[in-house]
Amino acid sequence: MGSMGMLMGRIIARTMRLSLDREELMKNLYRMGVLSMPIVIVTALFTGGIMVIQAAPLVTRLQAYGLLGWGAGFGILREIAPLLTALMINGRVGANNTAELGTMVVTEQVDGLRALAIDPIGFLIAPRFIAIVVTLFLVTIFADILALVGAAYVGEWMLGVSPLTFFNGLTSGLLGVGDIVSGLIKATLYGVVIGLSSCHFGLAVRGGAPGVGKAVNATVVASAAGVFVLDYLVSFTL
């Protein structure tokens, strides 16, 4: 925890001084954001579908077809889309990031950077951290929309609720901008957790290939637990 805080402080200091590598930032944004799109699309569509299937017995019991859009929309926008996107990005980007940094540490490339008087935080860590936070924010917007589309069409297929009714329920006033904003705030905070823990565990790798594997394992576990704890704290404060 302490060393993660110090890492955070150093990243913020580099960002404020703008001494971070632009090219590296763009490269990481492409690799983390654009290349994660396929799994985000699949996850979001399926999650939307699962939400509707889980709500189906309740909806048929109450005959409240108009409320399906509201129920699914609220669950997706506030909780499920940010949460599952964060878990998938944690698996793909966070784990990958740790593995890369760990490999660099093990093969002494980070020491090489230091020997060339290049600041590893400004060159390697800060761009990755910022790229993860930005990626998670943007990807969550995308996942929100896709999950709602998935939910609307699964609703039509399984319950016979037309997508129009679904979107009417969504926009009938029970849901506000606050719900979307709260989801996006969560997504940003999850990005901070995933970015910090993956960079921290990546830099702390010791002991060859098995060490890299262990570090990746530790990262995904720490980030996943951190995401759930944060989810709780944010849900209660907002």
Binding site: T43, M88, A95, T103, A209, V212, G213
Partner: peptide
């Protein structure tokens, strides 16, 4: 060691999917 990192990432993503 790079390969181990990639394999771990793949395992997490594919088993979650």
């Amino acid at each position: 060691s790079e390969g181990v990192g990639r394999a771990t990432t793949r395992a997490v993503v594919n088993s979650s999917l």
